[in-house]
Design a protein around this nucleic acid. Sequence first.
DNA 1: TTGACAAAGATTGTTAACAATACTTCGCTG
DNA 2: CAGCGAAGTATTGTTAACAATCTTTGTCAA
Lengths: 239, 239
Amino acid sequence: MPSDPQQNSLTTSSSKAGPDESFIVERIYKAVMEQRLAPNTKLSEARLCETFGVGRMRIRRVLLLLSSQGIIKLESNRGAYVACPDQSEANEVFAARMLIEPPLVRQLAQSAEDLDLTVLVDHIALEDTARRNKERTEIIRLSGEFHTKLAEATGNKFIFRMMRELVTRTSLIVGLFGSSENASCPDDEHSNILQAIQSQDPEQAERLLISHLEHIQSGLDMNARPDPQDDLAAILGSG
Amino acid sequence: MPSDPQQNSLTTSSSKAGPDESFIVERIYKAVMEQRLAPNTKLSEARLCETFGVGRMRIRRVLLLLSSQGIIKLESNRGAYVACPDQSEANEVFAARMLIEPPLVRQLAQSAEDLDLTVLVDHIALEDTARRNKERTEIIRLSGEFHTKLAEATGNKFIFRMMRELVTRTSLIVGLFGSSENASCPDDEHSNILQAIQSQDPEQAERLLISHLEHIQSGLDMNARPDPQDDLAAILGSG
DNA sequence: TTGACAAAGATTGTTAACAATACTTCGCTG
DNA sequence: CAGCGAAGTATTGTTAACAATCTTTGTCAA
């Protein structure tokens, strides 16, 4: 590969335009959620600049934001890498979810009559479709998003953000330690949880959610090394 | 005031050195926690560059990080302002704390025998001292930090970060809507909560915490306008 | 062959200049 | 005197060049 040692002015596009910051964040976020970007994959600035057709500044802001959300890890003078949770971090994520989600669904069930749960109903339909069509990345993403949407249903911005972060990390963990196929959530557990909420049965909803989380956690084997991807353009370009 | 319209090269210091990014973040964070930086106060880049003796780049990164934590608000082409929560956001913060903190202290009480709670004991001593000496900003900060340290005692990084964000916002809210003097937490409630935890009484700990949060919330009146500070150097310089 | 060392290449970190936007002040007009 | 508009000033956003660091490659000697 030739030199061009100072290729700051990338030949991609008019630079001033190009996608928004949050668009890029969402794009990478989604790729991580769908496990198309494996842990430890390097996200080099130049590569991302080319891919999204923006200047370095915007990319660096995006990387800083992603790192503040724990989605990537910034190493000084070395670059950005997709986060690679270890076992103890995995335990912490599940412990945090065990703390937050049970009271969350309990509260949802208690106030179910005042809430609009059609979003969740529709979501489960989407999950079913994806499962029928065996669309792997879709299944993975939708499985995580169900929990995010539970949090969203509370209408509380802070709870939503917390759960979103925990779910994203769970997705990374499942990608790392999950035994291939049962990686996503078991088939009808989401549906059962939602039904318990709709029937305004807090105890049952809480019980089902706890065992659901336990199922996910027990499906991990904690022996695995990641295999970083390389073709960022292909991965991030579509999606 | 004279022009010097392109004062990028600030005459402060050798620029390459200067304080670390996280140092500056912590400094501003602390000033907000202690209510020395009022909501809506503008944080201009140049001012911060002078104050901390660093280049614009580092300040801009700091501002982006602070905004991602919700401590400040970035407005396009206008600058950074200390966050100014409104009533609905205040309600969300307390709702989120009501969801998370009760199970948190319950869990602490359940596993109290395995934990080292001396940090919390020492902390309450600090609170007492500050109260005796009537050090207002210290009292405010320590009152918030007690809750942060409760979360820290779980040893769970995610729970810690969530609580830290919620406590910071609570501090902003109390500063905005709190009726002057009872702004901080009532005197001995922290001590009682800790005692319940130490006696491994989850029910009691949970009960006390809930009423504690209710006390804080009921001490707000929800009529108030902020008064932005101006002398950043004085506020951020010492601390 | 393997190990260490050195030079070259590539990537990230930083700075300074430039561009674009918002704010202020001053003057004008009704 | 109040309201409005325009020029000037200050502030933020962006770009390109430069500096520093890390990584790789190639060479030499044990």
